[in-house]
Design a protein around this nucleic acid. Structure first.
Lengths: 188, 188
DNA sequence: ATCAACAGTTTTGACGTCAAACAACCGTGA
DNA sequence: TCACGGTTGTTTGACGTCAAAACTGTTGAT
């Protein structure tokens, strides 16, 4: 059932394993290896475009999270930390640098003085809106080689995979019931 | 055409954008955002298992490339650099550390004294074979939530995407014809 | 009211990666 | 043979991330 498809890097890796260690089942690499490879290649493409706006990918991530969070464009440091799979120390460092660049401002939460609130500044907001438009454009180009239907099927399959990996949507503000005991800190 | 699927993180991101900036077309995020998210989650799962063998993911990558390269388990530093999308300086650093751990040994290529040849040691070989088996097992578990057919379709779609991203298989040893002018160094 | 356990952030030191400059070596052509 | 451009690796300094410990504020039980 060969697909008559030109080999990609991962296909070559699997062929090499099959020759050297035929007993090793490399099936999972067909998915996992390709996801990691694609992530790396896609980040390169997007990084270049963001650089045109003077932004690093990690800066865009934070700004975008704030911009889409609602009219106030404010989130706590902890919420930001949880949403982008980094450690708290990393987020502290990011926020410090972005405050220095005047992209965000910070203050303490009135209802819980342990919590730091991060807010988009006017210039941060302007910047992220331009960057978001540009970023969507490059990403569109990057995946333009696939038909709309294939993109849709790929998105759906990745969605299913992510759900099995435990990647649920974060709880909406003011969820019904008590605080969900979700652990979002990176383990280890 | 809603799919009655529980939202994942990226679905929530897209819904938030739709509310805050309805004119922004976030279609590409459905694919690109999910790939990056999945890569991050999968790396976590695999990292833990590799740690049981005393290996970091980057160490496994190098050892595995050597092990599957053929009976001699030898590759030049440049070949390794090209195959895993890192810069030459990174590879120098990796090799140094792995020589210190006695996982690999190095020597200069007899036919081109600029080139450094990296070879798997006996203990490196033993270690990577055990780690590879363990790694395949975790990856299998990680994607076990998808049926075989879905995994197959996902792999095929990712394969197609990677080809459009320029991720071709590296040339076989002693390719027919002249040296292909492929650029594999990270740009910028 | 107090205290202990917990939650949210920050600090610290180590680590891996990158970009850019550099060094050694190869091959070609004059 | 020698000079020069291209190739292969290494060095250097800066940067972003992490793990773990420390710090501050909160909550609940007594």
């Amino acid at each position: 059932m060969s697909n008559h498809m030109r080999p990609d890097f991962v296909a070559a890796v699997r062929a090499a394993w099959a020759e050297q260690l035929p007993d090793l089942d490399t099936d999972p690499v067909a998915v996992v290896g390709r996801i990691s490879r694609a992530a790396r290649l896609l980040e390169r493409a997007t990084k270049a475009r963001l650089a045109e706006h003077g932004l690093e990918p990690w800066e865009y991530d934070v700004l975008a999270a704030l911009r889409r969070s609602g009219p106030k464009a404010t989130l706590s440091a902890g919420t930001l930390t949880a949403s982008m799979l980094v450690t708290p120390g990393t987020m502290t460092n990011r926020i410090d640098r972005m405050v220095n660049r005047r992209l965000v401002s910070t203050g303490i939460a009135p209802d819980d003085r342990r919590s730091t609130l991060v807010t988009l500044t006017r210039s941060g907001r302007t910047l992220v809106e331009a960057a978001a438009a540009g970023l969507m454009a490059v990403e569109q180009e990057a995946i333009a080689g696939l038909s709309t239907q294939r993109r849709q099927r790929l998105a759906n399959l990745l969605h299913e995979l992510l759900l099995t990996l435990g990647d649920d949507a974060p709880p909406e503000k003011a969820t019904t019931g008590a605080t969900p005991p979700t652990r979002r800190r990176p383990p280890r």
